[in-house]
Design a binder for these strands. Sequence first.
DNA 1: GACAATGTAAACAAAC
DNA 2: AGTTTGTTTACATTGT
Length: 665
Amino acid sequence: MMVESASETIRTTPSNQNGVSSLTSQSDGGGGREGGSNGDTNGEISPVDLLHLQQQQALQAARQFLMQQASGLNSPSSNEVKQNTVQVPVSMAMMSPQMITPQQMQQILSPPQLQALLQQQQALMLQQLQEYYKKQQEQLHLQLLTQQQQQQAGKQAAKEQLGSKQLAFQQQLIQMQQLQQQHILNLQRQGLVPIQPTATMQSLQQAMCPSDLQQLWKEVSGVPSSEEALKQAEGLDLSTNSSNSTSAFPKAASAHMPLHSLPNGQGHTPKRDSHEEHSGSHPLYGHGECKWPGCEALCEDMGQFIKHLNNEHALDDRSTAQCRVQMQVVQQLEIQLAKESERLQAMMTHLHMRPSEPKPFNQPLNLASSASLLKRESEAYPEGLPHPPTSAAAPITPMRQGPSVISSSSLHSHSHHPHGVGPIRRRNSDKFCTPIASELAQNCEFYKNADVRPPFTYASLIRHAILEAPDRQLTLNEIYNWFTRMFAYFRRNTATWKNAVRHNLSLHKCFVRVENVKGAVWTVDEVEYQKRRPPKMTGSPTLVKNMISGLGFGSLNASYQAALAESSLSLLNPSLVNPSAASLNMLHVGHDDVSSTVEQVNSNSSCSPTLSPQQYSHHVHVKEEPTEIEEDCRPISLLAHVTHSLPLPSDDRDLEEDLPTEDLE
DNA sequence: GACAATGTAAACAAAC
DNA sequence: AGTTTGTTTACATTGT
């Protein structure tokens, strides 16, 4: 009985893949009103009007600024159908073809890159915004001063108006702030930025309030059409209405989306399809809620939702405004991404990191390649874990490895899988001597919190988990725990990845099952593990050598390595990193190549191959509960001095086999 | 195109 | 009886 799935029922249903095939252009007639002229206001030419004018100019500037950022908008490209609507966790903001989805970004870029990129992004945008706000404020101050002077001058007539003007200014300021928040929000909404729920919620709430949106739109979108101008008078009412109709607005809806729209394709960012009325699903409808920005109205079924949609989100000012805002959000993100991509490309080019020849384009491919490059780097470096004797070749392999390690493949693969969890081939790590440790070490926190699929294969992850364990052995359940503990990503789709884990454990010889008093535990047979890809490099040792020393990589390698090592040491659970683990676990098993290298490790000689896992576990034994990060009471305390030996040379000395258990195999 | 590595799904069976 | 753990098989995708 396939009980298996029973336990993890979850079974990511989203088989619907991504019903949302197309992002059909936001028809919404959006483009329509270009704004500029809002001739609405009155007609006297008083100082007040002058002020008003200035004000408008300021606003104009603001609009332009925003529009500039979104200038890409015009390019209809962004509307093209994205086949692999893959569960883009983020808003479809990134759906533009030339853009990579955040998820893809995540997979392509290493976490640190991602973070850096995002931070840059944010910093940049914030900076811009802040500058702008500053200017605005200054301007307003000036204006106010002027007003005061005028008041003193005795123009009482204008007094009232001035008062209102001041109010207007204030509003403007507020709006500016809102804009700013909105901006930040947008970034977060992408899902690219690990969000602090609390902070985000606030900004979200503030930013997404319908009425705010409306105002925002009015300011941002430039001048209202004549029609709007007419309605403007009613504007206030309208907004109040809106807020009534959707009283509950602010929070959940908006707050959820960004947070949960994750890889699994549940990202429901509103997509305005004109022909959405599809039978089963609607991009704006999910989890029984209306996903219209800022609206979380509950709708039991499609019918009700449609009704709601037509009633509450009909083609009116508010909806249009919201739509516009959304559009801008999307555009801005796209633009920003493009910029960053370009920058990255430039950087890579500059650093001669010819991914695969810097392609003139800046999009995906490059990113992918660059990513792969980076990956390779990481691969090339040692990680907290020791390298197998044969590793001499290992570290290098990656280099000779073609340019595209990850490439688009991983990007597309998803589409085939119902679960957002596409077979992401990050052969990178596991293949050659897992750089996992370093990667992980560096981005430990990142993976823990970000719902990003780690760029490692199951095998490498499992191995890492096991090696990280105090006694280098874990029960299946512990492995599971490790996964969930270390990766936010593995807190979902449990059925899937757990199955994969089991599958990997059984499939790879490198994972040895050892019967223990307390049941069975899994250990890693490093030799086997390394054997996995013998054919590759084995060929030309000389070549290897060359690669190591030659290719300026050597040096880079070293330093980078050191850095990585250090960081990993500090970040990673000490017990894990410490070489002792390595040495320990490699209780030598005298193997050809290995043996040679082993000499260095002699220290451990004590560990006779006879040390069976059981015994082992006996004295160190910690199992039971996922003891996590505790210091393993391991007898051997090499850590002390070895700590920094990580940089290839020493550690490289491979680990040997882990335990004599191989026979079990 | 063959092949290896990897990921996912699923069927089964044995152990808990 | 229901779960968990393991093993296998099948199939798809990618990269070599």
